[in-house]
């Protein structure tokens, strides 16, 4: 759904996606020196990450589903 896990084979650890995402979806894995798609449920599909990633390591699909509504959570 929406933003996919960052492709670690391609990611060069530049951190652009972490910096520019309007919804704060990415984080850096400091040990692996790679970006991680940490909060995909908050993606709004703007595709800034796809456009600005210099290594084409990020994919956003047009579908997005939300969690089931439950009594409390």
């Amino acid at each position: 759904m929406a933003v996919q896990p960052v492709n670690v084979e391609l990611c060069n650890g530049c951190g652009i996606c972490v910096r520019i995402c309007p919804l704060d979806v990415f984080r850096m894995d400091r040990e692996a020196k790679k970006a991680v798609t940490r909060y995909p449920e908050d993606c709004m599909l703007c595709e800034f990450c796809v456009m600005d990633c210099p290594e084409n390591a990020i994919t956003v699909t047009p579908d997005k589903s939300s969690k089931l509504i439950v009594s409390w959570g």
């Binding site: 929406a2 709004m44 599909l45 703007c46 595709e47 047009p62 579908d63």
Partner: peptide
């Protein structure tokens, strides 16, 4: 079909 996909 793709309600969230503005770019699409």
């Amino acid at each position: 079909e793709f309600p969230a996909a503005f770019n699409h």
